[in-house]
């Protein structure tokens, strides 16, 4: 929220880069450098680097990646937020943008439908997952039945106003009769001007199109002597519809690609039995 790249800077910057790539593709689309940049060879290299980077990131133990360590300096601390990985995602987005613009300019939408769906879906999901993170706010609210909660705590210790009040109406914990472990827990919360709503794990409450409330925990001792206490996670994610659109397009593109009768690879391959 306080980042330099949060809205509207990220939107204007992204739009500017997209226009620039459109101009490059329309003016110099047949130049060998531009053709090379949108080639399958570049896609292979970018995907290969992503695989290697993810493997290293997946293998590095978390205790190696503390602040000030060599791994941190090399960009493998928490690798998705490292400069190198962000650069890689930027290159992937630029490559995808060139490829999509090129195919759109060919205007063969029926032939390229699955290609366009797949690549546009991935592009949208990557944009929302990279540029959109600067606008994401996540905080915790401690909700009780005694007083109305109107603020949330961010991870860095700051306190933000919720813009509405929440209090707890009821709290229910279902335990396993076998070992007493928690099977499910549900909080009934009352939100100003919205009313009463049940939330539980896997059942968040969408208070606004970009804001959801999640039940993440409770005070385990509440059923002994104390009043019930529910920990509510508040997530504001304005890029959520963009991510959802990306997911839907990617799924549709993959379905259309998998169910095609003949692929470009099959037609090109000298090993194909029906050339």
């Amino acid at each position: 929220m306080s980042s330099f790249f949060s809205f509207p800077v990220n939107l204007f910057l992204g739009f500017g880069i997209l226009v620039l790539l459109w101009v490059v593709e329309s003016e110099w689309g047949q130049h060998r450098i531009v053709r090379r940049l949108r080639s399958a060879a570049v896609a292979c290299w970018l995907l290969g680097i992503t695989v290697v980077w993810s493997i290293i990131g997946g293998l590095v133990p978390p205790q190696w990646a503390v602040d000030g360590s060599l791994w941190q300096a090399l960009g493998f601390g928490f690798f998705p937020s490292s400069w190198g990985f962000r650069l890689l995602i930027g290159c992937l987005l630029a490559h995808l943008s060139l490829v999509i613009i090129h195919r759109f300019r060919l205007r063969q939408y029926r032939r390229d439908a699955s290609f366009l769906l797949l690549h546009t879906g991935l592009w949208l999901a990557l944009v929302a997952g990279s540029v959109g993170t600067f606008d994401r706010v996540e905080g915790r609210a401690v909700v009780t039945s005694e007083a109305e909660c109107t603020t949330m705590f961010l991870r860095d210790g700051r306190i933000l106003p919720l813009g509405y009040g929440i209090h707890l109406d009821a709290f229910d914990v279902e335990r396993s009769p076998a070992d007493g472990s928690v099977v499910q827990y549900t909080a009934t919360i009352v939100v100003d001007s919205v009313g009463k709503h049940d939330i539980s794990v896997n059942n968040p409450f969408g208070i606004r199109w970009y804001e959801d409330l999640y039940l993440t925990g409770f005070d385990h001792r509440h059923d002994v002597e104390r009043q019930p206490v529910a920990i509510i996670m508040v997530v504001r994610e304005p890029w959520k519809p963009v991510t959802m659109a990306g997911i839907l397009l990617l799924a549709a593109g993959m379905l259309s690609y998998a169910f095609r009768r003949s692929s470009r690879i099959s037609r090109q391959s000298p090993h194909h039995p029906h050339p």
């Binding site: 399958a40 060879a41 292979c44 995907l47 992503t50 695989v51 993810s54 470009r264 690879i265 090109q268």
Partner: peptide, 20 residues
């Protein structure tokens, strides 16, 4: 690891497109 796997499968398809 799921991301690495998915990218590896995509890489196979792009390799085949590049040099069938």
């Amino acid at each position: 690891w799921a991301a690495a796997t998915w990218c590896a499968a995509l890489l196979y398809i792009h390799l085949r497109l590049r040099h069938a």
